[in-house]
């Protein structure tokens, strides 16, 4: 694997140059203080780059929103019939965490299999992902990437990965696309030869900041053989069914479909939906095969930790910790995994 060096002071000029070709999405501090992956507006680039966040601050939403937005139009309809609405601009994602990369790769696999999802695949077909590994956990106490095997640095799946060496980044190349990007902007990159060992030390130190973590593999094994109905019942009573955990989750992909029409024309939209909602399984007759709080709670945890490993070969939880951080009543995956693995009562 070839490596390069990128000075931190060159990040903004690099993104500016790259914006001639790419729509750039990066962690930006927004008006109210939240950090989120947002498109850099090309007409106000310098101003937007002022809000670029380069340290390990947590992003509120995962970058799935770029490829699977909360609301999207599937097609418009009217007197001329149906007009498909797809979007496939070239997208450069800068500063994706390793756990979020795992989430994107998981969703890629889900949307590509069987009946390929044209909307997701078209949005993501022309993308470049620059991962920036975390030096310290962005969601201290909530995230557990090392336990889940998804971070703090990525092993594969990225185009480029940045390792923070202080005043500069060591840039690891993970794909031909990543190599081409460096060649296209070669003025910003120097050889990384001789700095790889320093980068390895940074990765080791970063992993050490993560604390004791959770026994993720034990939890995954027990999810298949154990009985956690009491946990689901207790958590189900506590949950307020706001859906925040689903919306912030990098791998939650459920959606509802609705038509919006005014007279003879309108559009078919899809919007995020979630398995914990009571109406999620309610049929037109009023019959609801899964009405109970316990069953809906079980659905969420078992889907991620039991059925995803069986069906997709990997856990649907990537350990980002957003669910716990966003929950108004203190429910989250890290706590649930501790309950399963250690037999404790965390919530």
């Amino acid at each position: 694997m070839s490596t390069y060096l990128l000075r931190k002071t060159d990040v903004r000029p690099l993104l500016k140059e790259a914006s001639a070709v790419w729509d750039i999405f990066a962690p930006l501090r927004e008006g109210v203080g939240d950090v989120n992956f947002k498109a850099l507006p090309k007409d106000r680039l310098a101003e937007a780059l002022e809000n670029l966040v380069l340290d390990d601050e947590p992003t509120l939403l995962s970058p799935k929103t770029i490829f699977f937005p909360q609301n999207e139009t599937m097609f418009a309809f009217g007197s001329g019939g149906i007009r498909e609405q797809v979007e496939s601009s070239p997208k450069l994602l800068f500063g994706v965490t390793s756990c979020d990369l795992s989430g994107l790769l998981f969703s890629d696999g889900f949307f590509a299999k069987d009946f390929p999802d044209r909307y997701y695949l078209s949005r993501s077909e022309n993308r470049l992902i620059i991962v920036k590994g975390c030096l310290k956990p962005p969601r201290q106490g909530s995230c557990f990437c090392a336990s889940a095997g998804t971070g703090p640095f990525a092993q594969r799946g990225f185009d480029l990965q940045l390792v923070d060496l202080g005043g500069e980044y060591l840039v690891e190349v993970g794909s031909g696309k990543g190599e081409s990007f460096i060649l296209a902007h070669s003025a910003f990159f120097a050889s990384g030869d001789g700095r790889e060992r320093a980068a390895e030390a940074v990765k080791r130190d970063a992993t050490a900041t993560l604390g004791p973590g959770v026994d993720f593999d034990k939890a995954l094994r027990l999810m298949v053989t154990g009985d956690f109905e009491k946990n689901f019942a207790r958590i189900g009573e506590r949950c307020v069914y706001c859906g925040a955990c689903l919306y912030v989750c990098p791998t939650c992909t459920c959606f509802n479909v609705v038509d919006r029409a005014d007279g003879g024309s309108g559009s078919r939209m899809r919007t995020w939906d979630g398995c914990v909602f009571e109406g999620y399984t309610r049929e037109a007759s009023g019959h609801n095969p899964r009405p109970s709080k316990t069953a809906r709670t079980a659905r969420r945890y078992e889907h991620k930790l039991k059925y995803d490993p069986l069906v997709a070969g990997r856990s649907g939880c990537v350990g980002c910790g957003r669910c716990l951080d966003s929950c108004p009543v203190g429910i989250g995956m890290s706590k649930f995994i501790r309950e399963v693995a250690d037999g404790t009562e965390e919530m």
Binding site: F111, D114, C254, F255, V257, D273, Y280, T281, R282
Partner: peptide, 14 residues
């Protein structure tokens, strides 16, 4: 089962 997409994506009939 209540379903939307019919093609294994929307999640409702899982």
């Amino acid at each position: 089962r209540y379903m939307k997409c019919g093609v294994g994506k929307c999640g409702h009939c899982n």
